[in-house]
Nucleic acid binder design. Structure first.
Length: 442
RNA sequence: GCGGUCGUGGUGAAGCUGGUUAACACACCAGAUUGUGGCUCUGGCAUUCGCGAGUUCGAGUCUCGUCGAUCGCCCCA
């Protein structure tokens, strides 16, 4: 076999695997796409209500936008899709949205705008993880970022916005968890205290926690294996390491949420995974079993040092991201997604062969705002009626030689089964009249 | 990255200890009904069981590999 033959063979059949989506990625179409767009449309509406500006940043960024030597999270250390085209400059598929927005904020000096700066985004994120329900390698986040004003009212507004967004979608079966990690100094102090405390129990820790001990001891607190053990429950408490300022700040956030009617649970073992969080952190968890083990619908927190760390000015920030696919899984379980195909206004049964006449009628109707499909090729009238049923057409229009000769069409109201003849030039007015009546009834 | 389960048509699936025409249902197409559907009846619809190799006289059924899905760990949205 020559290399050319081999090559051609390869392209067409030898490796069939090349013809499927890569692991953890999916094609989205039809009902599923409409549902996703519905969720996104409401999100954009909420952004208008709360004064956020939508933003699109590139899906690929320089690796350093995300990569930070001090960052211990798995996301940064082992889940990023990074590659290099010249073995020098590394490019990364964004694993999250916040850092791209911060990069943009710094690059374009958006911080000269009036504070707070409210930005939001919708887009694909990429993480190289083992896929499972609610966890894909390419997934969609709806996120918000709020910069430049450190104020408990801002925290409360951000959390409330996310909560009311879910409420408006009809989502319940959720719980909002809140915690405060304190400022950076108290967080690292606490972290050290935990490390030395757990050091003496090292033998009793699970394998994962042994690893966490030096990496991020806070995570031991919410470990599923060790979390319930006595020595973990008796570990030093965050509260004892918080500055008075942080405590007061957190109290104010809680009070504002009470005022707004946002239910929440304070969970002092809530530790967010990304290293840049400080002070207020929160997540919304689904209690529905359909969500499986990936039950966090959205999560976020305050990140007052991130902008500065990335080379920008001292600028506080808070934000969250919603996992769109997880949200849709929950909504489906709650029966909030409808699969209704959109009903057609009219379906044209076309008995003419090789004649654009019916197409012309369809165009006239479409130009007048009616949703129309038509039959293009020779099929029995019976099967064309079946198509009309499947499309849930409100009216069926029949066009054959006799109609064309008289310059009219036959039109049948599917709800009443009444059929009449209408002059072509009167068709739009006829339908307008019909639909007007229908709307008044509704 | 680790462990468990699974992979048959457009869909849901049957297929027993390997045996040779791959059930059944829904959907779809055609006809009965040559310009009128949603009921009924009749017929059609998987050269093939994710992909590849092996064992065997013979594999959808066994073995290995691989790809994918799923559940849990881990991680996080």
């Amino acid at each position: 076999m020559t290399s050319l033959e081999k090559g051609r063979f390869y392209i067409f059949r030898e490796d069939k695997m090349a013809l499927q989506t890569i692991k953890g990625t999916y094609d989205v179409y039809g009902d599923r796409l409409r549902q996703a767009e519905m969720v996104e449309t409401l999100f954009k509406h909420f952004m208008d209500l709360y004064g956020y500006t939508m933003m699109r940043t590139p899906i690929i960024e320089n690796r350093d936008v995300f990569y930070d030597k001090s960052d211990t999270s798995d996301m940064v250390t082992k889940e990023m899709y990074s590659f290099s085209l010249n073995s020098k400059d590394y490019i990364t598929l964004r694993p999250e949205g916040t850092r791209g927005v911060v990069r943009s904020l710094i690059e374009h000096k958006l911080y000269s705008l009036e504070m707070p700066i409210k930005l939001s985004y919708i887009g694909s994120m990429f993480r190289h993880e083992r896929p499972q329900k609610g966890r894909q390698r390419e997934f969609t986040q709806l996120g918000v970022e709020n910069f430049g004003e450190k104020n408990p009212l801002v925290d409360a507004e951000v959390i409330a916005m996310g909560y009311f967004y879910l409420k408006t979608l009809g989502v319940d079966d959720i719980v909002v968890y809140l915690n405060t990690l304190g400022d950076e100094a108290s967080r690292s102090q606490y972290s050290k205290a935990l490390e030395s405390y757990f050091k003496s129990y090292e033998e009793d820790l699970c394998e994962d926690c042994k690893r966490r001990l030096s990496l991020n001891p806070l995570r031991i607190l919410d470990c599923k294996i060790d979390g319930a053990k006595d020595f973990v429950l008796n570990a030093p408490k965050m509260q004892d390491y918080l500055s008075e300022e942080s405590k007061v700040y957190f109290e104010k956030v809680l009070k504002a949420l009470d005022e707004l009617g946002v239910p929440y649970k304070v969970n002092d073992r809530l530790v967010r995974g990304l290293d840049y969080y400080t002070d207020t952190v929160f997540e919304v968890v689904s209690l529905n079993e359909a969500s499986g083990s990936q039950s966090t619908i959205f999560g976020g927190g305050r990140y007052d040092k991130l902008v500065e760390k990335m080379g920008g000015p001292k600028l506080s920030g808070i934000g969250f991201a919603i996992g769109e696919e997880r949200l849709l899984i929950l909504m489906e379980a709650l029966g909030l997604l409808d699969d209704e195909t959109r009903a057609l206004d009219a379906y044209i049964i076309n008995m003419l062969e090789d004649d654009p006449y019916a197409l012309k009628v369809a165009e006239v109707l479409r130009h007048n705002g009616f949703m129309v499909k038509l039959n293009y090729y020779k099929r029995s009238m019976k099967s064309q009626f079946k198509s009309a049923d499947r499309e849930k057409a409100k009216f069926v229009i029949i066009i054959a030689e006799s109609e064309k000769a008289k310059n009219e069409i036959s039109i049948k109201d599917q709800s009443t089964a009444l059929q009449e003849s209408v002059k072509l030039e009167d068709l739009c007015a006829y339908l307008d009249e019909k639909f007007k009546g229908e709307n008044e009834d509704a």
